[in-house]
Amino acid sequence: MNEILTVSSYLPGDLVISIVPRGQGEKIMRAVRRAGARGGTILEGRGSVNNKLARILGLDSRAVELVFTLVDSGILEAVFEALATDEDILKLPEGAAMHLNARGILRREILPPGARAETPETDIFSVNPQAGRSAMSQAKYELITVIANTGFSEEIMEAARGAGAPGGTIMNAKGTGRAEDVKFFGITIVPEKEFIILVVPKNKTKAVLKAIQDLPSMSQAGVGIIYCLDVTRFVQLGKKMQREFVR
């Protein structure tokens, strides 16, 4: 029988986002795989270096990679342990990792050889992935995501920094063209966006949001949108790991 047997699963899990200098994402992948995670997805962005002189000179941006890893609940500790102790990662000049609660991870897996073919399909409607999960530990940080039209990221970052955000990561993104948009020789012109993520201690979230809200460039409708997510854990990686995060 040559048919590949697969089964879907729908379970609670955890999302670990690691941010490391460009080209180093593979090291994260290797470490989390050793800890039992299956893989990950790498996005590219640019981060900022926390150095006053570099900022004045305008040389404070650094190309980074964001590694999104979905891990099964239970191995979260092992993943963070691996990130903190991996020798390659310890050598990185800068890096960070955060943990977000993934409410349910739906995936399809290949059944191991010998498994019975009659394994029933998971019925998503009948499963509550959060059931039996202990209440999450109190989130200390928040992940603020700002999606704004291209060109405002500098101001947004500066405002956020002024309000106590330690730094952020910017990714280039595209908006969606609308159907009623005028086409330009058959091309839909899509608005360019910047996708900015900032991890902020929970007590500073509101100050940061206010600072961004008060920016003159954010005063028009439709310029940008912001949402916040709980971050239960946030650690520095690499050489700066030992340093205290909250200033």
Binding site: M1, I4, L5, I110, P112, P113, G114
Partner: peptide, 9 residues
């Protein structure tokens, strides 16, 4: 590779 486990069965 993905086909292999099923093939052995």
């Amino acid at each position: 590779k993905e086909a292999a486990p099923a093939g052995r069965q």
